[in-house]
Simulated assay, not measured.
Amino acid sequence: MISVENLELKKLNQDGVNTLVDWAKNEGWNPGENDSTVFWKTDPDGFYGFYNDKELIAGGAVVSYNQEFGFMGLFIVHPDLREQGIGKKLWYLRRDLLIKRLHNNASIGMDGVVAMQPFYEKGGFNIAFRDERYECIGKKMDVSTNISPIETEDLEKLFEYDIACFGYKRQEFLKSWFSMPQSNTFKYSENNEVLGYAVIRKVDKGYKIGPLFANNNQIAEELYKSCLNTASGDSVYLDIPTINTKAVDLVNKYDAKYVFECARMYYGQAPKVAIDKIYGITTFELG
């Protein structure tokens, strides 16, 4: 039996983040094959956990976006060591550390599985909306000529567009997210103006779209079809905020099947975002 009282919070190196993502794969969370590299580049100081005899036994993200907004994700205790109080101690230490990493009164987000939501609520988080994961099978379809890949010269416009949907600047994350191996990026443009974008990447089982942001349902559908085009015959997953009923309509139109759900939760004030533009969130791990 491990002495929970003697466990000390330690910063993880990149190998530690890789281990957490491997555990996430074993949990069936279906992470991307290159997710850990992007996560690490986003905030190398944003991952902490517990070690026992130099072996990682539990960990999670405490990522800061320019000290303006934080996100707690990738929270995992090794399956052999659960129900001992390790996770509870780790979670509260991570929450308190992230509060210190941020500006005063900055908000923190997370996506909580249903079973853990009461625990997170006791820790000061409030549910903003439900996220549901849907699975569709990729197939070839014609798409709008307004769709094109994201290029380097598009980045500044994409950064600005993303703020309206995420709520805060996250350039470092996006630069790495857009350039991941085994991924495809798409933007929808009219008159040199970006009206939506999407990323699809290879994950452990199939492919996952995230984010899918668009000004309206028609644009969202064209981006969704573009992503499905790249994964013909494979499972394609999309995590939608059910508060946006147009996102629900989109997955229903393509006969996507419900997989599971989380809830987007916030400690402090929920960010001001254009929820009607969010057809698919980026990740459950970093927001």
Rank of each mutant, 00 (worst) to 15 (best):
L74G: 08
R82D: 06
G73P: 10
I99R: 09
R101E: 14
D96T: 09
W40S: 00
K54C: 05
G73E: 09
V62M: 14
L74Q: 10
F39M: 14
G85Y: 04
W91G: 06
S36L: 00
G59Q: 03
L97M: 13
G85I: 05
G60R: 03
F75Q: 00
D80V: 05
Y92T: 14
F47G: 06
W91P: 00
K100H: 13
I86M: 09
G73S: 13
I86G: 03
G60E: 05
F71Q: 05
R82A: 04
V38C: 07
W91H: 09
T37E: 15
F75K: 02
Y48M: 09
Y48L: 08
G49Q: 01
E68A: 05
Q67H: 15
L90F: 00
V77M: 10
D80Y: 05
N34S: 12
Q67R: 13
G49I: 01
N66R: 14
L98N: 10
L56C: 08
A61W: 06
L81G: 01
R95C: 03
L102T: 02
F69W: 12
L102E: 04
D96S: 09
H78M: 01
G70V: 12
R101A: 13
D96R: 06
M72Y: 04
D96Q: 07
G85N: 11
G73C: 10
E83N: 13
G73L: 14
L97R: 15
V38Q: 02
Y92F: 14
K41H: 09
T37I: 13
K41V: 08
F71E: 05
G87D: 11
F47E: 06
T42H: 08
D35A: 05
L98Y: 07
S36Y: 00
F47H: 15
T37N: 12
A58G: 00
T42I: 10
V38F: 08
V63L: 14
R94E: 13
F75V: 05
V62N: 11
I57F: 03
F71C: 04
T37K: 14
V63H: 07
D43T: 09
A61G: 15
F50W: 00
F39I: 08
Y92V: 14
P44F: 11
G73M: 07
I57D: 00
K41D: 11
F71D: 02
V63E: 06
K88E: 11
W91K: 03
G70E: 11
R94K: 13
P79R: 04
S64P: 11
V38N: 04
T42D: 12
I99N: 07
A58I: 01
L90N: 02
I76H: 04
F69P: 05
Y51K: 01
G73N: 10
L98E: 08
L98M: 09
